[in-house]
Structures are given as C-alpha cells and as structure tokens.
Design a protein around this nucleic acid. Structure first.
Length: 590
RNA sequence: GCCCUCGUAGCUCAAUGGAUAGAGCAACGGACUUCUAAUCCGUAGGUUGCAGGUUCGAGCCCUGCCGAGGGCGCCA
C-alpha cells in the first residue's frame, strides 16, 4: 500500500550504508510497529550491525551497535515526505505516517473496492481444490463438517487472492462399505423407502446395522464379494439397487450443501474410477512399478521403499488391487489425479483430506512420480487437517454409529439462536427472527473449525459449540449489525475525506486493522490457513466495538461525524468481506 | 519397530525468527434515560513439557528426551 514511500526509504538506507561503509542488505524487511495509537512501518538494523561486525572481524555488541545505527539513520532521514515523524528505538527504525493522509487512503480504498476489498489482482492461474468427499450410504456427521467448512473457506480465500478456482468434490459412492450396505438392505429392508427427513441419518443407521450383521455372519464376506462382481453388469440387481440407494444419499448431501451454502464446479465419483484405475494398474505392472502377486493369491502392490532403495521405512507399500482383481482406493486416486490434469489446465491440484490420509497421499504422489509424472509433483498438494473428536478423545465413527449428526447440530444451533434473538431483540418479526437464527446458528458452528490451526484436533461438545459469547462468530456478526444500524439511521455515508478532527486511538486502531485485509488474504491463501482471516475478523470486530463505545458517530460534530460515518462503512465492509471469505453470512439485524 | 502431528495462563486457543508472549471462557470489581449491553473497561492469572544447539535475536528453526494422539499389504 505504501510501496513508493518504502522504496524511497530503502534507497536512502542504502546511501546511508554506503556512506558509513556498511554492508547494504539485499532486501529490506519491513514489519509492523507494535501498536501504540499511531501507525507506521518499521525495519530493524540488527542484521546490518551483525553483518558489519562479521565483515570487520571485530567483536561488537550487536544490539547496542544496531541502536546506534538506528539513531544515526533517523537523524540522517529527518522527516521524509509522506511521514509525520521518524524515531529510533532499541535498534528499530520506526517511520510514522501522516495520520490524516493514511486514514483517508484506507477509507477511499475500501469504498472504491466494496465487496472486492481485500481481493487481489488476477494471477492468471487456475487451482483445483477437492474437498468434502462424503461417502454415500453413511451418515453425515460433525466429523465431516470440518472438511466441508475448511475446504469451502479455502476456496473462497484462494479465489480472492486472485486465482481461478475449480471447486471439486469426490464422492465415495463405491467400494466394499457401499456393497455391505446394499447386502444388508437386500437381506432385511428390500422395498423400504428412506424417510422424508434426515435421509443421511437413516442411511447411516442402516450402515451401522450392516456392520453389526456382518460381524455375526460368517457367509457375509462371500456374499458381499458376489455383489461386487455382479455390479459391473449395469442390468444386475446389485447394480440397480446400488444406483437407487446411492441417489438417496446424493439427494441428502445436496440438501446439506444448500443449507451450508456450499457449492462445487466439478463432482467426481469413485464408481467412475474403477475402470480407468484398472487400466492404470495394468500399465504400472507392465512398467515394473507395481508388483502383481495375484498368482500367489496376493494383491497388486507398489513397493515404494524398495523401488526407491530406502534403508528405512518411509513410503512403505501401497496396495492397488485386491487379489480378486477389484481396485482399491489407492488405484482410484492415481487415475483421478491424472484425470484432473487432463481435464483442466491447473497450476495446482489441492486435496483437503484429514491427516490420517497423509501416508496415502505421499504414496499416491510418489507413485505418480515414479510413473513418469514428476512434472506434477510441484502441483499436487495434500492439505492435512486434524479430526474432530468428542470429549474424552472419542472418535466419531460411522461404522460404530458414534456420531453427532449434522442435521441435529444445525437444528439445535438454530433453535438455540432463535431463543436468544427473541430475548435480545423482541421487536423483530418472526420471519426475520428465523432468518437471523439460521445465519447466526450456522456461523457459530462454522467458526470454531476455521479459527484454529489445521493441525490441531477440534473437540466437539455441545456446550462449547453453542456458547455464543466472546471469541465466536456472533461477536463479529454483532459488530456488523451495529455498524449497519448506525448507517441505516444516518441514511448512509458520503465519500470519505481526510479527517478534520484529531483522531481517537480507537479510530486509528480500527483503520489500521481494516488496512491489513489485502495482505492477510494473500497470506492466508499462500499458507492455506483460514486462521489468518478469523484472527483479523475478530480483531476488526473488537476494534469496532471499542470505537463504538468510545466515539459517538451520529451525535458527533462535523467534520468528525462525516469521517466516522465513512469509517463505520469501511468497517462494515471489511467485516462482511472477511465473513464472506469464511462462508459466514453477515446479518443486517440481530 | 518406522513415520507424522500436537504440548503456551485453571480451560479453549492466538502470536512473518523481532520490541514488554496476547485473546476468549471461568473468577472478582465496574459501565445501559445514550448509534442494539450478543457490548465495553478494570483486577488477577506464564520458567511457552525438559535439556542442548543454530542465530545479533527462538514459543517458532535443528538434535535428543518426556508426555498425548494418529498412521503403517488386500476398508475408504
């Protein structure tokens, strides 16, 4: 945002170094000054002091030398154009901006960009991100929630950073677990229809039943294998039943996606990968990459460590095909990975899948590399995230039916929020109240999954999930509502002008945070972390609430009133944009 | 056995290698005839698991150890 000013200072820093006989840095590192009610940029002289000491071979006290250099440089610089003052503090050179110019620039930027504020210029590259990956014939539970929410938000963030986004889903509609469901349905539930509501719950219940039945049935495995073999024939009963029941799950998924505001550009299905993956396995065997042990009643495997000549176990062995010739998901993923690049021109192909699949993706990528696709290695990327468990480290399990169902969670959150809305704002009509309850309830569910490191386990418990106080989504939504309320009463804000009054500390802080959104979006996209956006959104909301309490807007004298209205509008926009990136709605009232 | 994460305040979590490690919850004390109190202000709370190393500078990087979780040939 202040590139011209920074470059001017960098040039003078180099001149200074030259004059003093100091080694000039290759690149000047700029950082933020710990906030003290005034904004500016900062750079340190530690590196130069250390380099110069090393060069001269003399032993010096680096912090002291850096401090001296900073003092000298500050004196040399005086007050450069665009800055209000320069100071040297403990080895740091701090340059403070002329407050009024800075404030006006930020507010004008936000007003001009509107919903696009924070978004980067197009980068001319396309990225595919695959997420959600639900399994048909199973329940949709809160364990799946983190993936959906994280994936959807990352797509928004990457897109905002300037990439063209392909949102992909890969639905597990095939495999042994699916056939197990069909096997049990055929034996115990033939002709039954799914209920009108909570389809995925019913599918999940039958799946858990199938698992139990299989444990007590010695012939089960053989019968399921028979169904598997039948499936290849589209006219077979197995295939017909599969198709019918699969659709029930897909319809249930779409209901949930609609509810969550999640969409996809391209949906892949595991069932489509069976044939191409078999061809691929044949080819890998021919190339000597895969080892066919079927003649000894074994599977087809890729002995990665052995192929790579590794002494220590690392990639281990990937199993591609069962001894009966049916493909396993490793083979499917090989076929799918290549299909994606054939279909799209991709700069990156990203997989958001939980951390337990890390070895699997390492195996898939390494096998592709061995198969002659080393050009793709810089493009494929697995983003692992930790699982959601229940208090006491109980893992959510479809197989054992230990789940908190998504539909139930959403219903409960909405119901609970509705009660709070009715209590806090009784004047809202019933329709608005219902809408707000939905917006806030969903946000409360989404936020905790986005506001933590991907690598940290999230523990779900009802009390925490439905605690709407403090660092939670409703806090940010409320700040947005307050901003909206001021603007509504004022009849909107006019074009932002430089402030004609002395800025309050809370105004400066708020403007500072708003100005950070563009950089933060780039960083979040580069690191694939939604956390940076939630952190900033929270800080903007907090700063806005502080401003709200300390600085009257509607009752303020001109010109402060106009400026503050512009600031309120900018804060509202910045909050709304952050929330939009996170897939969270910003209500107008609540 | 091998590999991968995590360990920060009582609890849940933040913190580009950078200045005095910050929030929320819980506890205690304050602020609503005022733009929505789902808010704000204050008090209290820390040997960043332990030990070395790299660096001008380490919660962050490296090594070892301790503790917790996860993964590892025919589930996905």
């Amino acid at each position: 945002m202040f590139d011209a000013e920074k470059q001017a200072i960098e040039a003078r820093l180099r001149t200074f170094c030259e004059a003093q006989g100091l080694p000039a840095p290759d690149q000047v590192q700029w950082s933020q000054i710990p906030f003290a009610g005034e904004w500016g940029i900062s750079t340190s002289l530690f590196q130069i002091a250390a380099d110069s000491a090393r060069q001269s071979g003399q032993k010096v006290n680096v912090p002291q030398r850096a401090s001296e250099l900073a003092e000298a440089l500050a004196a040399e610089l005086g007050t450069p154009p665009g800055f209000s003052r320069v100071e040297a503090v403990r080895g740091y050179l701090n340059l403070y901006f002329a407050a009024t110019d800075y404030a006006a620039r930020v507010l004008q930027d936000v007003a001009a960009a509107g919903e696009q504020y924070g978004h980067g210029a197009p980068k001319g590259e396309q990225i595919m991100l695959e997420y959600s990956q639900p399994n048909t014939h199973k329940a949709f539970h809160v364990g799946h929630l983190r993936n959906m929410i994280l994936g959807a938000a990352l797509c928004n963030i990457i897109e905002a950073a300037g990439y063209q986004m392909v949102r992909a889903n890969y639905i597990g509609d095939f495999g042994k677990d699916v056939m197990k469901w069909v096997w049990n349905y055929k034996a115990r539930h033939m002709g039954e229809q799914p209920p009108a509501e909570d389809v995925t719950r019913w599918m999940g219940d039958l799946y858990a039943e199938a698992s139990r039945q299989l444990e007590n049935n010695p012939d089960g495995e053989t019968e399921i294998r028979a169904l598997f073999n039948q499936w290849e024939d589209p006219d077979s009963e197995a295939h017909q039943l599969w198709q019918l029941t699969r659709q029930w799950s897909l319809d249930g998924f779409n209901e949930i996606y609609d509810l969550m505001g999640i969409r996809f550009d391209r949906i892949y299905y595991e069932s489509e990968m069976e044939k191409p993956s078999k061809q691929m396995v044949t080819q890998l065997i021919a190339e000597g990459i895969a080892t066919d042990e079927r003649s000894e009643d074994g599977p087809v495997v890729v002995k990665l460590d052995q192929l790579l000549g590794l002494e220590q176990e690392k990639f281990r062995v990937m199993v591609l095909m069962r001894s009966d010739g049916t493909a396993l998901y490793g083979a499917w993923d090989l076929a799918l990975a290549l299909a994606k690049f054939r279909e799209y021109e991709l700069a990156k192909s990203i997989y958001v899948v939980d951390v337990r699949q890390s070895l699997h993706f390492q195996q898939v990528f390494k096998t592709l590399e061995l198969a002659g696709h080393s050009d793709l290695m810089k493009k494929v990327l697995h983003i692992p995230y930790e699982v959601v468990n229940l208090p006491g480290n109980i893992i959510l399990s479809s197989r054992e039916g230990v789940v908190v169902l998504l539909e139930e969670l959403i219903r409960e959150a909405t119901r609970r929020t509705g009660e709070i809305v009715a209590e806090k704002n009784p004047e809202l009509d019933a329709a608005t109240r219902a809408q707000v309850a939905r917006q806030v309830g969903l946000a409360a569910i989404k936020y905790p999954m986005l506001a933590r490191e991907n690598t940290k386990i999230a523990t779900f418990d009802w009390e925490a999930a439905l605690d709407f106080n403090g660092q939670a989504a409703p806090y940010m939504q409320y700040a947005h509502v307050r901003a909206n309320s001021i603007l509504r009463r004022a009849g909107g804000a006019s074009a932002a002008a430089a402030p004609g009054h002395e800025l309050h500390k809370s105004e400066i802080e708020l403007i500072d945070l708003i100005s950070q959104l563009p950089d933060t979006v780039q960083r979040a996209a580069a690191e694939y972390k939604t956390l940076h956006i939630t952190n900033l959104a929270y800080e903007i909301a907090k700063a806005f609430n502080d401003f709200y309490n300390q600085c009257p807007v509607l009752g303020a004298e001109e010109p402060a009133r106009s400026f503050r209205l512009g600031l309120v509008a900018a804060a509202k926009q910045a909050l709304a944009n952050c929330l939009a990136l996170l897939g969270i709605e910003a209500p107008e009232v609540m």
